Amino acid sequence: MRSTPPPAVAERGPLAAAAEAFRLGAAQTLAGWPVLIGRCLFYVLLMVVLSGLWDKVAAERVADLARQAPVGSFVLYVGATEWITLSIPALHLKFEDDIRGGALDVHLLRPKPYLLQTISQCCGWAFVRMLALGATGLALLTVSGRAWPSPESLAFMGVLGALGAVTGVLLYALAGLGAFWARRVLPFQLIVQKLMFVLGGLFAPITLYPPVLRRVGEASPFAAHLYWAGVQAIRPSLSLFLTGLAWQALWLILLSLGCVGLWRAGVAKVLREGIG
């Protein structure tokens, strides 16, 4: 009897599993629409407060700010960075629950790669959140009477924002994988979060920083997460877009390798010592 060769689609198993996990994550977020609406309302409240702050700063006619950007652009910058930040699910907590709660043993027995599936599912959650929060932000601009960003700026922010969200997912994945060595990942998550505030330029663009700190911030994964997308609201530029794209590509590769390395080291520890 002639053996039947395995179908070619089997070779694409991990990618197919990742795509299905992404679709599942998106569907789960849509199914939890009340939570999604609550997140959008929180975004509106946050932007009302922050726009009031930046409008007050602009009213003081600070010379350096006036030279760097047109009136109202800093509000758009913060709107872009918060749009990305609020789209990121708490992946670190899922890793903590699975690793510390003993659910990891079940996942390791399955043929599909747990790490890739979990990150892909989280990206599906983030994708739907970005769409909902983006629509909320544009509606808020319309209602408030503020000028919309240019089409060029919106296109650049959309691409860099999506890649920045994936960068943020990987940063929180690194924090969550610390659960192999620590009972709680909160300290790791807080370190990542605070660095996002400072080096990522969450509330203020890092162009306002001293030169040395600015260069450090621009080269960091936290700027790849937030700053390069947000700066398109201030100065839409093809050169800045390509620069941000290059930094994001670099950090997506490095962070992915970091996640794989931590995962393998953590699984080896579990198989050797168990969860301590």
Results as ranks from 00 to 15, higher is better:
residue 77 Y to V: 06
residue 88 I to G: 04
residue 180 F to W: 01
residue 267 V to E: 13
residue 266 G to M: 05
residue 90 A to Q: 14
residue 252 L to P: 08
residue 180 F to G: 00
residue 20 E to K: 02
residue 204 A to R: 13
residue 207 T to I: 14
residue 115 L to V: 02
residue 191 I to H: 15
residue 141 L to W: 07
residue 32 G to N: 13
residue 199 L to Y: 06
residue 91 L to H: 11
residue 20 E to Q: 06
residue 145 G to F: 02
residue 169 V to Y: 01
residue 52 G to C: 08
residue 246 A to E: 05
residue 217 G to V: 00
residue 227 Y to F: 12
residue 182 A to E: 14
residue 52 G to F: 04
residue 254 L to C: 12
residue 124 G to I: 00
residue 263 W to V: 00
residue 155 A to I: 01
residue 103 A to I: 08
residue 139 A to E: 10
residue 87 S to Y: 03
residue 256 S to E: 02
residue 208 L to Y: 13
residue 81 T to M: 08
residue 200 G to Y: 03
residue 74 F to M: 07
residue 116 L to F: 04
residue 235 R to F: 07
residue 104 L to W: 03
residue 230 G to L: 02
residue 197 F to D: 06
residue 43 Y to F: 11
residue 270 V to T: 08
residue 139 A to H: 09
residue 92 H to T: 05
residue 242 L to N: 11
residue 126 A to L: 03
residue 127 F to H: 01
residue 115 L to C: 03
residue 141 L to K: 01
residue 246 A to C: 08
residue 177 L to V: 08
residue 249 A to E: 10
residue 101 G to V: 06
residue 16 A to N: 08
residue 118 T to V: 11
residue 20 E to H: 04
residue 274 G to C: 11
residue 268 A to L: 11
residue 81 T to W: 00
residue 62 V to N: 15
residue 257 L to P: 01
residue 163 L to Q: 03
residue 198 V to I: 15
residue 16 A to M: 04
residue 182 A to C: 11
residue 253 I to H: 06
residue 136 T to S: 12
residue 122 C to Y: 00
residue 2 R to W: 10
residue 218 E to G: 07
residue 202 L to A: 14
residue 102 G to L: 07
residue 100 R to G: 12
residue 99 I to L: 15
